[in-house]
Design a protein around this nucleic acid. Sequence first.
DNA 1: TGTACATCAGTGAACGCGCGTTCACTGATGTAC
DNA 2: TGTACATCAGTGAACGCGCGTTCACTGATGTAC
Lengths: 232, 232
Amino acid sequence: MMTASRTARERVRAELIREITDIARRHLSTEGAAGLSLRAVAREMGMVSSAIYRYFPTKDDLLTALIIDAYNAVGEAVEHADAGCAREDFIGRWMEMCRAIRAWALAHPHEYALIHGTPVPGYQAPDDTIDPASRDGIMFARLFTDAQAAGTIQLPGDTPVPAQFHGDAAALRETVFVGVPDEGILRGIHAWTWVYGAVNFELFGMYNNVITDRAATFEHGALSMAHYAGLR
Amino acid sequence: MMTASRTARERVRAELIREITDIARRHLSTEGAAGLSLRAVAREMGMVSSAIYRYFPTKDDLLTALIIDAYNAVGEAVEHADAGCAREDFIGRWMEMCRAIRAWALAHPHEYALIHGTPVPGYQAPDDTIDPASRDGIMFARLFTDAQAAGTIQLPGDTPVPAQFHGDAAALRETVFVGVPDEGILRGIHAWTWVYGAVNFELFGMYNNVITDRAATFEHGALSMAHYAGLR
DNA sequence: TGTACATCAGTGAACGCGCGTTCACTGATGTAC
DNA sequence: TGTACATCAGTGAACGCGCGTTCACTGATGTAC
């Protein structure tokens, strides 16, 4: 009874927190991050503005919750995309992961902007955002690890890897890019950079009057980047 | 006397407009675009807040002026970088243009964010921004045009260009990518996309704890992207 | 099972702030004859 | 060269707004004996 009732109160609390973040997320998609307001969220909750402070001690804490949720959503999308592929189909896994990022970004443009757009001025991300932020990168690294283990990474070697990168590469090889040579890691990072660059350009309007069928050109870019990074 | 005195008044006016945008630009770099305020600018000018309306009828007009200035600054940086290279050194021109973008972005992170970060919510860019916005892209296209004319573009052909891009390619070939085949145009756009993706990642902190010497890895990325796009 | 106490959720008023924009005005600068 | 008029720059007060955050409070829910 004691623990049951405690969890009863806690369950209501958890539900309200979810409701608050849901409303905040919706406001995000109409007003943008800068226009997010605790008062407006409270209003829509049917609460008096000060009541929200029972759940989030400050505006930045609400923002942090939204950021963590967004990172986790991308991470999950990428993980799910990868899970649906045959393990040895490295190109297929790469393509599905790229598509997952683009699809999620197009479906949630403002949440995407929150984590990949201009940093919110004055906001300092706390440490709890680090792990969620690296979920998608870890999946890409794992793909390269697997491809390397299968011996299918073919690197051109036409552009020398700068010596300054050796240290970073060694550290990354210890943790996520297990066994992958420097050039493979660096090209993997460049290709991953391209993916987000392309999504940014598409979302922020840089392809207007340039590219009509963005899905098709994204496919081409992602596939050619897979080759660029040595995947076969 | 008549025209001379008229220009005297106009000269003061032009100077004040420049002073206002300079102050606004400085505020941008501490508060971000969302925190830009006409009242704060007026305060720093030593003017009463309503006086600013003699120069910018609305806040969005000031924002537009800053955006146009930022686009022109990148455009000029790229043009200047290109002008300093031997015409037939296509890789050299590409590298200098990439470096110019990165250097300008690092030197003016908030102005960069203004034009390549999250769009300011509620702000609708007027048509006068279109031309300045395409200056840098035109320079890249011209580079590919020149390389194509010299017969030095070598395309791998390992990734088929989607049919949906043919129309866009034809239009681009009429105007900026003169004579460049579909695959060259598309790879050029992808490589250009990578450049901004890399600058975004560096500026917005995605390389934290991953890459230490960003200049060195940027060099590698830019050079390998030049090869990716067929430049020799 | 019942009672005394502690915890928690939500209220309502208030503080102090800054914002964009309008408007009637004064005084200086420029223009036309 | 001098005067009457028009244009422009800048003032100061005001409107109406929304914000984050604090604080003393009421009333409900949970806890311990």
